[in-house]
Design a protein around this nucleic acid. Sequence first.
DNA 1: ATTTTGTTTTTTATCTACAATAAACATTTT
DNA 2: AAAATGTTTATTGTAGATAAAAAACAAAAT
Lengths: 299, 299
Amino acid sequence: MARQNTVFKEAYNRYAAALRTDTALPSEPEIAAQLGVSRSTARAILTRLSEEGIIRWNKRQKTVLRQPTDRDLFPSEETDSLHDIIERSFMQRILADDAAPGMQINELELAREIGTGTTSVREFLIRFSRFGLIEKRPNSHWTLKGFTREFALELADVREMFELHSAAEFGRLPQGHQAWTDLAAIRDDHHAMLADINQRFRDFSVLDERFHLLIHRASKNRFIADFYDAIAIVFHYHYQWNKTAARERNERAIHEHLDYIAALESGDQAAIEKACRAHLHSARQTLLQSLPQLATETA
Amino acid sequence: MARQNTVFKEAYNRYAAALRTDTALPSEPEIAAQLGVSRSTARAILTRLSEEGIIRWNKRQKTVLRQPTDRDLFPSEETDSLHDIIERSFMQRILADDAAPGMQINELELAREIGTGTTSVREFLIRFSRFGLIEKRPNSHWTLKGFTREFALELADVREMFELHSAAEFGRLPQGHQAWTDLAAIRDDHHAMLADINQRFRDFSVLDERFHLLIHRASKNRFIADFYDAIAIVFHYHYQWNKTAARERNERAIHEHLDYIAALESGDQAAIEKACRAHLHSARQTLLQSLPQLATETA
DNA sequence: ATTTTGTTTTTTATCTACAATAAACATTTT
DNA sequence: AAAATGTTTATTGTAGATAAAAAACAAAAT
């Protein structure tokens, strides 16, 4: 088959889950905009909802007849985009214990294992290569460079340059700027999490990402933003595999964030730089400690 | 057809051009290594050279019978890799006057215009997207972000962060390091070019790239190296279109480079930072001035 | 024993085809 | 007239096929 209708299925699930009985639905363009899909897909969703007897649809009249149940929704395997499936599968592979740096990556084999065509795998690898974890020799195979100590150090160096830059820019934002409100909200979330740290320490990574993303947006630089995407992906998958001492690590990080936030709010550039450096220094240690032992040895 | 044999043709041309009558040729693996291709391709080259009566080939005996002429070589259109063809064609397009930021990029149209399949164009665009000049909306078209003022400023900011870092690292390289020898050679090349600046100012861009590449290698950071690739591509194509005041601009840059080199050689970190900043500041101005007028206006 | 050549297999690069999705165009309704 | 719906067209995303190129294996020569 040429293409899975995952966009349709995923949007269908989202829309069905939000339906409330006896309400009237808006126009097709509006539904499409709400879901972030084209009107063609929105119509396909309405068609199916109608066929399933969930809504009555006649031109402008669209009324919800009944609440959809779980059985009306598509199973989650069918709603994942191919890109996500490949990404998960690939990350699992390269974070597995037997994935040694220097290992060859075979497009065809990967495609077969995931159950997909080679084109999609190729395109994924090309996109993924920007994260510096794999490398290609033209007309030949990809090589896994891996989560090595070098990788962590290079990543940390660039991260520090970028974040110092972004933090300084953040400190220069004018008073009424939206970012200050967002920062205050994030500060409160930190306090809330700290109050219940034993239960909630696992949620820290989400908060961490929100915080750093907010900082980086202040620099309004596409290269910095792109790099932060890379960091986010790496951290996302990497920390799923390395959960040692998460509570202590996260609690310490929260305190550092609070210092950092206070410095930002003070507007004192020297204080900002100091707090930022302090946090980045310990973030670097955390990253280095979380490396898989195998990868630390090899180059 | 599935794939053009451009690797073969390009390597054939290279090898044929270097042949000298009555010499004996080395073993197949050695030829392959010299040319940077596989032995299969090397054998294909030997087979053709033999068929064309340019060499006599019998197992280990390989003697050059006659000097190949220009007519023995493949025409240059047939030796360019598809990737290069697409890159040139695409850059020409986005640097053309009517390429306004915000413009849609159509894969199929591009492919037809270049005379290639859509897959190759897609893959090129994905690779190219890391340079921040184009952006994709999923399930929809690519958008040209263009050589805008924002692009130049963001590029320059990151460039400055990276180069200051690399220059500082360079200053810390140990005495006997190869980089110092390379730097001295580049210094001499600068003096040589300066002595004959009216004739040679057009060659500066090559020297410029060599110099900055040498600096960046000192940081041993894959992200910095990758970013410099982006800069190099952008400059390579961009300056082909913008040649105003090249002589003055390049002469000034040479002087700045020489100051910069002297600072590096002094090992004085404060002096390095100062010279580096001075050069980067004027490089930024040059970049901003070279922007096409159209792109400066729009966001 | 190692290197070289001969032969076969594997893998990549690229094209083409087609369903899903988006976008454009035409008609109807408010 | 503007917005919604109905219909058609264009474009993207993905699979599958195939020649080129690389890599692996086998036999022969130093």
